[in-house]
């Protein structure tokens, strides 16, 4: 009887405790086994791997043309792989040492009041070489420490909230701003309509009034004459 109980218990345990064994199945996939043997992160820049035959669905050449150097500028902005996450954001840029920031980033400089009004150089905030991407974990520009390492150099007491001021401010009336900063876009347009509407109405009103006034005559009788 006791033996039967032990046998059933073992059979039951064999059935129920088999789950961990099934779970090990995942390492049988080629991808996971490859990653187990791989010492790197598994993410490669295009210049690190031999060119493949490419995908028939993607026009690689066109994407490459518009990017800066070899950077994967079109990788998702918020995912590793984008230059914003790299320790050296300019690695692989052709003739980098002979370039000035504005040679490639003129658009960014033009919408930055620190540059246009205060004459602050890019490197005063973005740091020296190698210039890390702003999202790179150890970068002083990383939002978790930007306020303390960058903003506070001039704006004493700057908080993380303060560092959320858009230094590279998108032009408020540009259509592209609608997707990156809709609140600025809508409020600026609303205010512009208010300004133009009010001025257009009152300028016309005053203009017509001034002309109409030319045809009016004052009553020149004094107060004593009236009485």
């Amino acid at each position: 009887m006791q033996h039967k109980l032990i046998l059933h218990a073992l059979l039951l345990a064999g059935v129920l405790l088999a789950a961990p064994v099934w779970a090990q199945e995942e390492v049988t996939s080629g991808q996971y086994r490859y990653k187990d043997r791989e010492s790197s992160t598994g993410y490669y820049e295009d210049y690190e791997v031999r060119p493949g035959r490419g995908s028939p669905f993607l026009q690689w050449d066109k994407v490459q043309e518009e990017g800066i150097g070899y950077s994967r500028i079109y990788a998702d902005k918020y995912r590793p792989g984008n230059t914003r996450f790299r320790a050296d954001a300019h690695a692989g840029v052709y003739d980098y040492r002979y370039k000035r920031c504005a040679d490639c980033h003129k658009d960014k400089a033009m919408i930055n009041r620190h540059v246009t009004k205060e004459d602050i150089a890019c490197r005063q905030c973005h740091g020296g070489e190698p210039m890390a991407g702003v999202e790179y974990y150890y970068s002083p520009m990383n939002p978790i420490r930007r306020h303390a390492y960058v903003c506070s150099k001039c704006h004493q007491g700057a908080s993380a909230s303060y560092a959320r001021y858009l230094v590279h401010e998108p032009p408020p009336f540009a259509a592209a701003t609608l997707s990156v900063f809709p609140k600025l876009y809508y409020s600026s347009w609303a205010m512009l309509f208010l300004v133009l509407g009010t001025l257009a109405f009152f300028l016309t009103h005053t203009g017509v009034w001034v002309i109409r006034d030319l045809f009016t005559k004052k009553d020149t009788k004094g107060v004593d004459d009236e009485d």
Binding site: S159, R164, P172, K183, L184
Partner: peptide, 9 residues
């Protein structure tokens, strides 16, 4: 902090 962008405009 981004409210400051709007405030200036």
């Amino acid at each position: 902090g981004s409210e400051l962008n709007i405030a200036l405009w």
